[in-house]
Simulated assay, not measured.
Amino acid sequence: MAQTDKYYVPAQSVWPIVGAIGLFLIGYGAATWISSDNAQASWIFFAGCVVIIFMLFGWFGNVITESMSGLYSAQMDRSFRQGMSWFIFSEIMFFLAFFGALFYARMIAIPWLGGAGNNVMTHEVLWPTFQAHWPLISTPGGTSTTAMPWTGLPLINTVILLISSITLHWAHVSLEKGQRGPLTIGLGFTVLLGIIFLGLQVQEYIHAYQDMGLTLSSGVYGNTFFLLTGFHGLHVTLGTIILFVLFCRILKGHFTPAQHFGFQAGSWYWHFVDVVWLCLFVFVYIL
């Protein structure tokens, strides 16, 4: 009878409940902050972010210790791959829901409100001055905004993320070849590009609020714009943290050409984030 690998079962961990508390603080703080413009709610939101970062580093530390101690087997490696694959699939469904809301507003709701089909008098009753076009830069209350152009910061950020995918792939290939120097340089550049992307997105949001009048209160266009780009920015933040942890592990000599799924999982996630941004750039900024 063939010998089976031992399957390591970790001890009970506090990190899931810590993560749940952090997510609760983020959700409650963000909802209260947006709805009431309460400064105290912003502190709750940022406290939740700190808790999540603390949880990530603590949980990552436990997993790294278990991995370096030789507790994982080939079966565990397959479990990690399946888990990461399902996680990315759930993230795809998450963004598809928001893209679905965007397409519904653009392709169904706005034409219907504009009198498409048999709804000739709909806009005359609900919104007499309504014009069925996208982006919808006005609200029934008379608030007007400006659409965010695809040139400038959005285009620069697109180039940055595309370059980051190239540098990360270069680092991955270098790892598989056992070339530690190019691996460190490529991964370091990827982390730096992720930080630059986030900094430029903050500048874009400040410009939108202060100069363009584009806010979360700017009707369906402002809602979909900030929800899609904001959640993507959150994923870029998480991806940058993951890559930074991998960078620190590389400096400590972790990973080998034969065993490096932790690096591969972080690479999968980053490439997924890049693909989502390309879809955002096309459907939110250009079209």
Rank of each mutant, 00 (worst) to 15 (best):
F225D: 14
V220M: 08
I92T: 13
F247I: 05
T167A: 04
I286Q: 15
R249K: 07
S67Q: 12
G199D: 10
I286E: 15
A132I: 12
F89A: 15
S138G: 02
M84K: 00
M121T: 03
Q179H: 11
H271W: 01
G152E: 14
Q3E: 12
L228K: 01
T32I: 07
Y28T: 13
I21N: 10
M76V: 11
T190P: 00
F95N: 06
L216V: 14
V120D: 11
K177D: 06
W112S: 10
T65S: 02
L23P: 15
V14W: 05
L243T: 06
L161S: 05
T158V: 02
L243M: 10
L102F: 12
A39L: 14
S90Y: 09
M76W: 08
L216Y: 09
F244H: 03
T184W: 08
S36A: 11
E176N: 07
L168D: 00
F272Q: 04
F54K: 04
T32D: 13
A2W: 15
G27M: 11
A265S: 08
I242H: 08
P10M: 06
G239K: 01
A116S: 13
L238M: 12
T139V: 13
A47R: 13
A132S: 14
V273D: 06
G222L: 02
T143K: 05
T158Y: 01
L192K: 02
T32Q: 12
S267K: 03
G233K: 00
A105W: 08
A208H: 03
V125F: 11
D5S: 13
S67V: 02
T146D: 12
T184Q: 13
V173P: 04
L216P: 15
H235Q: 09
T122E: 10
S90G: 04
N223D: 08
S144Y: 13
M1E: 09
M148H: 08
W33M: 08
L56P: 03
D274N: 01
V63A: 07
D274Y: 00
L155E: 10
L216H: 10
S164A: 10
A109K: 13
D37A: 11
F189N: 00
G70A: 01
A30F: 11
I163Y: 05
T215H: 14
T129S: 15
L246N: 06
I108A: 14
L102R: 02
S85K: 10
I52R: 03
A208D: 07
P111K: 10
E66V: 00
P128D: 11
C279D: 07
F189P: 00
I206N: 05
N223Q: 09
V50D: 15
L234G: 15
V51M: 10
K6H: 15
S138W: 09
A208V: 06
T240W: 00
T139Q: 03
E91K: 00
I196C: 07
W33L: 03
W86A: 04
F244I: 12
G114P: 05
G219N: 04
N38P: 01
E66S: 04
I44K: 01
L56T: 09
A105H: 04
L243Y: 02
L214Y: 01
M68E: 07
M93I: 02
G188E: 04
A47K: 12
I166F: 15
L155G: 01
V284D: 11
M84G: 02
Q131K: 15
Y8P: 12
I17F: 09
N38H: 03
S69D: 12
G178F: 05
V50H: 13
L25N: 03
